[in-house]
């Protein structure tokens, strides 16, 4: 294992110390492993979080116009309810808090329990669950679709609505609408190494890629031979547009790197995606190209696409100032 770290067991807190040092907008609550906005504003609070290793998610999205607090778990493990409650308390200005949660069993349980604890403190809490990964088949009993990079668009829209003075009900309703209208699909070219483990959890053979792998290395749909950017774009666009009708829609598109793929490749992929979706009469009005929700040093990329309505479109354009997304 070659990683720029000090102690494999301290990577999360060491990272959050760094984030606090470089970003004047945020503070680091060491007890709760929470990054929160330095200046509390009278508005609905937005809190997200989850396992670490997906940076800049989620602490990188704390700031004006997005999240008020992000709660970090250990690498690929949900934060516990006590930490999440700290995040809720940091974000609450008396107008309630919206939790944006990615759909994993551990995150769901811990955020729900934190919401129960917050209710005992009379903090109104609503939750939106993001389940954008179309690689996972939905079923009644299983956890179902995972939450991946589409979550970042939900952060932005919910954050903008809250910053503009929306009530908890309004913010939750719009965030839910964003979550309902975003779909994602990813491909992985390599495994990744958890700092505390030291060896890769799995590997993908030379000349191979995996379609639909999760951001913790969960198995995808199939392994196949490595394909060109044009072919990968085609698979992504097909999988996503098969699942939701985007025809005639304006959209926001995230071309997301998983941590080990150069921007050069992401822009090549983005060009192919743009060509394909325009041919389907889809109009991208906002692109994000870069590392927005990663999987340590995994190579690969995902595409997320949000079908916009006027309100969501307006929210996307509103200013935000965070480490990982600046607008306006």
């Amino acid at each position: 294992m070659k990683k720029i770290i000090n102690d494999p067991n301290q990577v999360v807190s060491d990272m959050l110390v760094g984030m606090e040092a470089v970003s004047p907008e945020v503070c680091y609550d060491r007890e709760g492993e929470v990054i929160y906005r330095r200046k509390k504003i009278e508005k609905v609070g937005i809190v997200s979080g989850g396992g670490s290793g997906h940076e800049p998610a989620h602490a990188g999205y704390v700031g004006t116009g997005m999240l008020d607090a992000a709660v970090a778990g250990n690498v690929f493990a949900s934060p516990d309810p006590a930490r999440i409650l700290k995040g809720i308390e940091r974000a609450d200005s008396g107008q309630g808090v919206l939790l944006v949660v990615k759909n994993y069993s551990g995150d769901i349980m811990n955020f729900e329990m934190a919401a129960d604890l917050a209710a005992e403190l009379d903090i109104p809490v609503r939750s939106v669950i993001v389940r954008d990964d179309v690689a996972v088949r939905e079923s009644t009993y299983s956890t179902g679709r995972r939450g991946i990079a589409g979550t970042v668009l939900v952060h932005k829209i919910a954050g903008a609505k809250a910053e503009a003075g929306g009530t908890l009900e309004e913010v939750a309703e719009l965030a839910q609408r964003a979550a309902d209208n975003v779909r994602s699909f990813g491909v992985s070219l390599s495994g990744c190494t958890l700092p505390g483990v030291g060896t890769p959890g799995f590997s993908i053979g030379e000349g191979q890629m995996e379609l639909g792998m999760g951001i913790h290395g969960e198995p995808g749909i199939e392994q196949t031979e490595m394909k060109s950017a044009a072919e990968i774009a085609e698979i992504m666009v097909e999988k996503i547009t098969e699942d939701l009708d985007y025809s005639g829609a304006e959209t926001a598109v995230v071309v997301n790197g998983l941590g080990g793929t150069p921007l050069m490749e992401l822009y090549i992929l983005a060009g192919e995606i743009d060509r394909l979706i325009r041919a389907k009469h889809i109009t991208p009005v906002k692109y994000l190209v870069g590392n927005f929700m990663t999987s340590l040093e995994m190579s690969g990329a995902s595409m997320s696409m949000l079908r916009l309505d006027e309100e969501m479109k307006d929210c996307l354009k509103l200013p935000c100032n965070t480490m990982a997304w600046k607008e306006g």
Partner: peptide
Amino acid sequence: GMTLMSAIGGSSGVLYGS
């Protein structure tokens, strides 16, 4: 319960905690 919830973390922690 509170101790296990925090010290174990993840899914098992919240389940033992609950």
